[in-house]
Simulated scan of single mutants.
Amino acid sequence: MPFAPGRPVLYRHIANGRVVAVRPCRVVLDDDRGLLLWLAGGSAVATEVATDGRGVRDMPFTEWVTLDHRLHETTWRGPAILKFLPRDGHNSVWFFHNAQDDFAAWYVNLEAPVARWDDGSAAGVDVVDQDLDIVVAPDRSWRWKDEDEFAERLALPEHYWVRDEAAVWAEGHRVIELIEAGTFPFDGTWTDFRPDPSWRVPHALPAGWDRPASR
């Protein structure tokens, strides 16, 4: 069953079967095209860190895999984001706005869908972030992002959650064809989106946010 518009849902990243990031969002729509979510600035979030508080990007991956980790509850410091999870792709497309609330860029987060889940009081989508990304300007010029990080982690296959490098690159090139053609969702759809003013910023994660990862 689709999620109802306005419903709070959790967008969670899964790595090697464990929850590593949690972001509370609102459902904008959920239809045949996919799931559209709104992440408000200032939302309560959770991110996996080492026991000393450093994140995975604060050190070489060779060091990260030797440490113990924990989920750290904090606040989303980035801009508000509209996130689109298409039905037919292994990615999510994020819509960024600038300080004047004008559309600034698309950001393609290559990711593998795992599962939707609904416990009644809490619901969400679990995905595996595949690290390689694409940044797209309003004129649809684009560039790859985090290629070095992707390569660094692929060098440790016993610890990395991405199993098929070629499939990730292929999905990226498939999306680039959509970008260059200016087809949905890179055709201007939702670039003028504004959230429902009644949606409150979630300053605490709901009960059930740390449920086991879906499989």
Rank of each mutant, 00 (worst) to 15 (best):
N109M: 13
P113N: 12
Q100S: 15
V114N: 08
D102F: 09
D118N: 13
H69Y: 03
L110T: 07
H97G: 05
L82T: 10
D102P: 00
Y107F: 12
D126N: 03
H72W: 07
V125N: 11
R77A: 12
L85C: 15
T74N: 06
A112C: 08
T75M: 08
L132P: 04
P138M: 09
V128M: 10
V127G: 01
V136H: 04
Q100F: 03
W94P: 05
L82D: 06
L71W: 01
N98T: 06
S92F: 06
D88P: 06
V127A: 14
V114T: 01
H69K: 14
V93G: 02
V127C: 06
W117D: 01
G78T: 03
P86Y: 11
V93D: 07
G78H: 06
G89K: 04
V108N: 09
E111S: 15
T75G: 04
V135F: 07
D139M: 09
A122L: 10
D102T: 11
F96E: 10
D102C: 03
G124C: 04
L110A: 05
T74L: 02
L85K: 11
H97M: 04
R116N: 02
W117E: 09
A80S: 15
F96S: 10
K83Y: 01
H69Q: 12
W94H: 11
G120W: 07
D133K: 07
Y107H: 08
S92Y: 04
W76L: 08
A112P: 00
I134H: 09
V128T: 13
Y107M: 09
E73T: 15
A104G: 04
R87Y: 02
A112I: 07
N109W: 13
D131C: 13
D129V: 05
V127S: 15
E73N: 07
G120C: 05
E73H: 12
V127D: 06
L82P: 09
F95P: 00
D129L: 10
D126R: 03
L132A: 01
A104I: 00
N91Q: 05
V125A: 13
N109G: 14
P79M: 02
V114P: 04
A137K: 12
L85A: 15
V135M: 04
V136T: 09
Q130K: 01
V108E: 12
R87K: 12
F84K: 04
L110E: 09
D139W: 06
